[in-house]
Structures are given as structure tokens and as C-alpha cells.
């Protein structure tokens, strides 16, 4: 199920959107050219002309780095408890040890923003939905907390809010008793920025994360996908995820 998302915006958003629009109109020059995401003009519905995606280059993910996880937590107001198994895990660091070679590397796992998301298919109320631009979201106003989406998610990418929170951010309001997951920092993306994890990885990390428009052949993401051998997790499920992994093997 896809849904148009007509988000409201501040004057700054409008200004930013207008600038982005002008820059995009310039022949051959887009914001993507300069390494940023395209801003969606405020008030304009999202379009299926764009499909946001993310490339995780496992070869560049530093084992001792958690910049992306900290940035995600700060951006979305995620806090930890003494029980990691009930903590919100929008993005998590995963250690991979090749069974044949014994080589150990690290990567990150999060919502894979599937084109055919099982979480959306099974949600009884339609609270889980996929925007036209490929971002999979939870409408926290109509999520009843049944957790069927968590049962259906093939990537263990969703978290259930197990406790009250009074330290929420305006960008990502959170509520006890509903399900949530990585949303590609949708408010940032709509404002023409990159997700917090991508920005942090480029700054303090190894530059392992590339965000962009899969439908734009000139985006950084598309160019990287043309040059690197990439894979989708559990590809036999044919979910056509927006998140791809490079240098897994």
C-alpha cells in the first residue's frame, strides 16, 4: 500500500524547497550533484518518480565505529535501557564472520525499505505504509500495537516501544505501545537533507553509507550501484529492498 504524504512545512522548508526547485531546474545540475538529497517542495505530495535508497559498503564500515547509531539515536530521541532486547533498534551494528574464510567484518542493519514490504501487507489497520518515494513508515496514530508487522519483517528491523518516553524529538514523536522503525529520517529527507546516519558516517565514520534516488541514474547511489557488486538481504523473498549491501563477500 502506498500513500501520498502531504507534509506541512515551515517558512524555512518553503525557502529551502524553492531553492532546491530552482537548482534542480538548472540543466544538468541537481542537488544530488553536490552530494545532498533532493528537497521536496513543502506542501507537494511525494512522488514515485523518486525512490530513496541506501547503499551500505561493508568494506568501509569500521569495526569500532558507532557514529551512525549515535546519530540515529540523537536525531530520533532513542534512549537505551538496561535491556538491549527491548531497546528501540532503528539501526544496529552487526558483526559478520565468514564461515569459510573466517574473515570478520561489520556492517549495519535497519529497515530495508522494501518495494513489497511484508510489514505493510500484514498490518490490519494500514498503519504500516509505504510512501510513493519508497520510504516505509508507521502511522503512529492508527498503530494498535499488535506487532504482526514485527512477526512479518524478515530483517528484525522493527521495534516496539516498551516504555514511556518523555524525551522525544519533534522530528520523531514516539509513543509507548506502538511499533516503529528506521524511516530514513523522513523529515530530513523531505527538507533536502540526508538521513542522520549517512551524514554521521560521512563525517566521523568510513563513508560506508550512500543515500540517494535509485531512480536517478546520475545520483551518487546509482553511480555506486553501477560500479560495485551489491546484494539485497534474503533476496529470495523478492522484496526488492531499497537498502543494498556492497562487498558483503
Amino acid at each position: 500500500m502506498s500513500r501520498d504524504c502531504n507534509t506541512g512545512g515551515s517558512r524555512r522548508d518553503v525557502l529551502f524547497g524553492a531553492i532546491a526547485g530552482v537548482v534542480t531546474l538548472a540543466p544538468g545540475i541537481t542537488l544530488t550533484t553536490f552530494g545532498a538529497a533532493q528537497a521536496k517542495p513543502a506542501g507537494e505530495p511525494v512522488s514515485s518518480k523518486i525512490r530513496w535508497g541506501l547503499l551500505v559498503d561493508v568494506g568501509k564500515c569500521k569495526p569500532d565505529c558507532d557514529a551512525c547509531i549515535k546519530a540515529c539515536a540523537q536525531e530520533n530521541g532513542l534512549t537505551t535501557t538496561s535491556r538491549p532486547e527491548i531497546d528501540a533498534q532503528w539501526i544496529r551494528k552487526v558483526t559478520l564472520r565468514d564461515r569459510q574464510s573466517g574473515v570478520t567484518r561489520t556492517t549495519v542493519a535497519m529497515c530495508q525499505h522494501c518495494e513489497n514490504p511484508p510489514c505493510v501487507d500484514v498490518c490490519p489497520t494500514g498503519a504500516s505504509f509505504r510512501r510513493e518515494d519508497g520510504i516505509v513508515l508507521v502511522d503512529k496514530h492508527i498503530c494498535i500495537g499488535c506487532r504482526y508487522c514485527m512477526m512479518a519483517c524478515p530483517f528484525k528491523a522493527r521495534s516496539f516501544v516498551h516504555e514511556d518516553h518523555d524525551d522525544q524529538t519533534t522530528a520523531a514523536p514516539r509513543g509507548k505501545g506502538v511499533v516503529e522503525s528506521c524511516n530514513f529520517c523522513v523529515t530530513r529527507v523531505d527538507a533536502g537533507k540526508k538521513p542522520a546516519c549517512v551524514e554521521a558516517c560521512a563525517g566521523k565514520g568510513g563513508g560506508a553509507l550512500t543515500f540517494g534516488d535509485l531512480n536517478d541514474p546520475d545520483s551518487d547511489l546509482s553511480r555506486a550501484l553501477k560500479t560495485l557488486p551489491t546484494a539485497q538481504l534474503r533476496s529470495y523473498l523478492e522484496l526488492n529492498q531499497g537498502v543494498r549491501y556492497a562487498n558483503l563477500k
Binding site: 538491549p84 532486547e85 531497546d87 533498534q89 544496529r92 551494528k93 552487526v94 558483526t95 559478520l96 564472520r97 565468514d98 564461515r99 569459510q100 542493519a109 524478515p154 530483517f155 528484525k156 538481504l233 534474503r234 558483503l248 563477500k249
Partner: peptide, 16 residues
């Protein structure tokens, strides 16, 4: 555990 990364022994602080 879900087999998200076939061919690898996987570990994380989230029980992967």
C-alpha cells in the same frame, strides 16, 4: 534467529 546474512556467523547487541 532470522537468517539475514547467509554464509556468515552473525552477532550483535540485538541478538542477531
Amino acid at each position: 534467529p532470522l537468517d539475514n546474512f547467509p554464509d556468515f556467523d552473525v552477532s550483535s547487541n540485538f541478538g542477531d
